[in-house]
Design a protein around this nucleic acid. Structure first.
Ligand code: MN
Ligand code: MN
Ligand code: MN
Ligand code: MN
Lengths: 218, 218
DNA sequence: CACTTATATTAGCCATGGCTAACCATTGTA
DNA sequence: TACAATGGTTAGCCATGGCTAATATAAGTG
């Protein structure tokens, strides 16, 4: 239906939204020049996929949002499939899914969702939108803002930086990991945490990318 | 590496080759105009993927052939994967693979081949080239040219016409089917065959697309 | 050999989606 | 309030890969 470029723009707009997304922000996210982003925004507005207020920004229309969610669903289902079925590591799957998502028919999307038992989270813990764009409310909190001395369960890790993901993996931090914040460094915001009996230090930049919930969820 | 268009042109040139492939033949195969095919042939020659003799035709260079075989391998591995793992029917897989083949990294290709146990035939019985383009010699024969009253084993069915494939499937004809030609119609070349105890009639146009070998291969 | 037909190429148009360079708007700070 | 910095847009270029129409070549026929 839509080109690879259009689909990637919609996905970025969704990720950066829902408010007016600036041209520079969008261009940086897609590693494209500002001029290219402006041109594409005009084309997306033409197709009624975004509303554009010149010098203000662009935001997805309902139509654009549904299209974006469809790509996000494909992306996350593919990541889950690559991880569970083909055994790829959490740090390898994002880049593959970034390409494959544009080649997956609705039919195959359904077949994969079915094969996987309709998962609701991908291997990074990101929620997988439903077949019609349904997305439940996000309640996970950034680890960096979480209270000290409580049992926390890691719910989400970032998906697009293999080096951060490898570091997390090597330190036993992934969705499902249970940990406790021992102390928070007053200067740089770094965290001293305990995973099982092992103590680790997590920098504040990484801690802001990890999301948790409180244990005893069920 | 190469664009979707370039990859599809190389694949068609391989399928129609190995001799000089005419512009019209190529254009028809890809459902583009002759002008588009000419233009692309010139670009492929520029990239040293084909040799082009004006008004004679184009043929793949070694480099082009290896590239084509890589796409054919991806295509056939994907068909096998879609069939075996996701349970898609033999008539659905070709069109999906035609798109996915361009989105499959070398890494994923290897993971899938490994997962499937390095198959040598796809669900249509087509040989799957090796990771470096190795392709064993083809010994299967067209059913239409095969002798009467011998036990034949179906080795290959066509892959790109869902209606023919559905007909074959509904009549129990697919790779592995054992059959015997009872008689050949002198006028239209149609075949009367026996599959188990059941008699069927196969038109000559379909019989020319099905390939067999003689039973007792091992 | 001349002429028709099929095949092939060229010329020139278009949409897409990149780019740089130049210019315009908004905003925060002096 | 002026004006630099930042962000946004426009103009104009390019490659890719389609298209049609016009022209050129090759092959077969009388
Ligand atoms: Mn993508
Ligand atoms: Mn993910
Ligand atoms: Mn293809
Ligand atoms: Mn096949």
């Amino acid at each position: 239906m839509y080109s690879v470029a259009v689909e990637d723009y919609l996905k970025s707009l969704w990720k950066l939204g829902p408010n007016n997304v600036g041209t520079k922000q969008l261009a940086d996210n897609l590693r494209v020049s500002k001029a290219s982003a402006t041109k594409m925004i005009l084309r997306l507005a033409e197709k009624e996929l975004v509303d554009h207020i010149p010098y203000k920004g662009a935001s997805l229309t309902k139509k654009g949002e549904l299209e974006a969610l469809s790509i996000v669903r494909k992306h996350r289902l593919l990541e889950t499939f690559l991880s569970q079925t083909l055994g790829l590591g959490r740090e390898e799957i994002h880049d593959e899914a970034e390409i494959l998502e544009h080649a997956l028919s609705k039919n195959l999307e359904m077949a994969i969702a079915d094969y996987l038992g309709n998962p609701t989270r991908d291997p990074h813990g990101h929620p997988i939108p439903g077949p019609n764009g349904e997305l439940y409310n996000e309640t996970d909190l950034p680890l960096c803002d979480s209270p000290i001395n409580m049992s926390l369960i890691v719910m989400q890790v970032p998906d697009d930086d293999p080096s951060i993901l490898s570091w997390l993996e090597n330190n036993g931090i992934h969705p499902g990991t249970i940990l406790k914040i021992i102390s928070r460094d007053k200067f740089d915001g770094g965290l001293n945490v305990k995973i099982g009996e092992v103590k680790k230090r997590i920098s504040s930049s990484i801690a802001s990318l990890v999301k948790i919930s409180f244990e005893v969820e069920n």
